[in-house]
Design a protein around this nucleic acid. Structure first.
Length: 430
RNA sequence: UCCUCGGUAGCUCAGUUGGCAGAGCGGGUGGCUGUUAACCACUUUGUCGGGGGUUCGAGUCCCUCCCGAGGAGCCA
């Protein structure tokens, strides 16, 4: 490789380098052109004096359209007036492709326009910063669980039936049979936990709910660890450690990107153990103290979640929900069977739920009773019931919504910007 | 599915009481040796979301349909 990336310019001060990239911005001053280049690793300025280059090159620099792809050769020098602190004094410029007039300008655009041009919008500084943080967060999730002895076990995307009967699933045609896109890998992870002890999956999940809110996508990524012998408190410890590690790792490795996103970093630095752990009953009392009355047995809505999360400077875990509002597979408290051994983690600053999970029902009779109560087709769950027939054991797990977690860490209002190509209600282009 | 807001130039928007379709940005042309969303001058750009109606005359008023956004419900 005989060219240099912008992020490495500092290593080549005084030397001649070749940059390959795109025209991010251009200014001209008669006998002097400024090209702001981006190459995926950063942004830098190329300066073209009329006297330094051939007349053809100088003429060409004046004609470059935004986002044209170019190869630039010149000498690196330190200069605080250039974005990134280094600039390149151009000696030669090669136009690889002259871009057509570029639709995205350095100004405010509407959401509809930007989403329709998502394939181009991704080139913008904030969007590339988000994608770099997303990449770091994914690696951090895997590193964390790897160090804790978890094995990654991929769950299938095609599934024969619902994991949770209540949700709407995307149906597909599977050689003439109906099949569905997975909404969670959890049930398969339960099988994996009895095979390998501690496992996780990390893949896309699909929900056909007609939800039109800033917290919903129809296709999103979920990290789902599952561990045999873990009880609710063990899982809460794991979730807490995971989220702390994610935040630490992004702060350590992606501070530059957080600054591009104008994230208040001090808010992230407050994220440390222990996270407050509050029961559902206590949460109702706290909400009542704030003038919000919820009848026992009702779920916390988006507004209540926002109020709760604004109450703390770090994520809060709410556990022991009424079992009637939780999924059929969730274990119940032995002392108070009306309560489920489940936990939700709410991110601070009003970002809402990022983790949901808990202890699973592992007794055969109890689980079959729940399947009947929920009118689920038992034949589709026979394999799942087998896990309760052959060496059943207590086990727990949770799901962490990647995009919701990123929206919180990056301080982005709507989760659609945290995934490269968001899939939403009424939007599947590009 | 419901509620609210919106759809005017490539983009962001203004458009008064119903009376010639506008601005900034972008594009084009020219000028400028240190610019930072550079600046200055000139110039270019329209199925006013679609259809129907009222009217001498509709971007503007009425009906209807389509599309988008925010939220609710539902959900992670």
């Amino acid at each position: 490789m005989n060219w240099t990336y912008i992020e490495d310019l500092g290593k080549h001060v005084g030397k001649e380098v070749e940059l390959r990239g795109w025209v991010h911005h251009r200014r001209s001053s008669g006998k002097l052109h400024f090209l702001v280049l981006r190459d995926g690793t950063g942004i830098s300025q190329a300066v073209i004096f009329k006297g330094d280059v051939s007349p053809e090159v100088f003429e060409l620099a004046d004609k470059l359209s935004l986002e044209s792809s170019v190869i630039v050769k010149g000498t690196v020098r330190e200069d605080q007036r250039s974005p990134g602190g280094f600039e390149i004094g151009v000696k030669d410029l090669i136009l690889v492709h002259q871009a057509e007039p570029y639709p995205i300008q350095p100004k405010e655009h509407g959401v509809d326009f930007l989403l329709t041009h998502r394939h181009l919008w991704l080139r913008s500084p904030k969007q590339t910063a988000l994608m770099r943080i997303r990449d770091e967060a994914i690696k951090a999730c895997r590193d964390f669980l790897d160090r804790r002895g978890f094995i990654m076990l991929d769950a299938p995307i095609f599934t024969p039936a619902a994991c949770e009967g209540t949700s709407t699933l995307f149906q597909t045609d599977y050689f003439g049979m109906p099949a569905y896109l997975t909404q969670s890998g959890q049930l398969y992870m339960e099988a994996g936990a009895f095979a390998l002890g501690r496992v996780y999956c990390f893949g896309p999940c699909f929900r056909a709910e007609k939800s039109k809110t800033r917290r919903h996508l129809t296709e999103f990524w979920m990290l789902e660890p599952e561990a045999a012998w873990y009880h609710l408190s063990d899982m809460m410890d794991l979730a807490e450690d995971l989220v702390c590690y994610l935040v630490e790792r992004v702060l350590e490795k992606k501070k530059r990107e957080l600054i591009i996103l104008e994230r208040d970093i001090s808010k992230l630095e407050q994220v440390r153990k222990p996270f407050p752990r509050i029961t559902y009953d206590e949460a109702l009392k706290i909400l009542e103290g704030k003038g919000i009355k919820i009848e026992w047995g009702n779920d916390l809505g988006g507004d209540e979640e926002t109020v709760m999360s604004l109450n703390y400077d770090r994520p809060v875990m709410i556990h022991h929900y009424p079992s009637q509002i939780k999924a059929f597979y969730m274990a119940r408290d032995e002392q108070r069977p009306e309560l489920a051994l489940g936990v939700d983690m709410l991110a601070p600053e009003g970002h809402g739920e990022i983790v949901g999970g808990g202890e699973r029902e592992w007794r055969y009779e109890e689980l079959t009773r729940r399947i009947k109560e929920n009118n689920l087709p038992q034949e589709a769950f026979e394999w799942y019931l087998d896990l309760r027939r052959f060496g059943a054991a207590p086990h727990s797990g949770f799901g962490l919504g990647l995009e919701r977690t990123l929206a919180w860490i990056c301080g982005i209002h709507h989760i659609r910007e945290t995934i490269p190509f968001p899939r939403m209600l009424e939007r599947i282009y590009p």
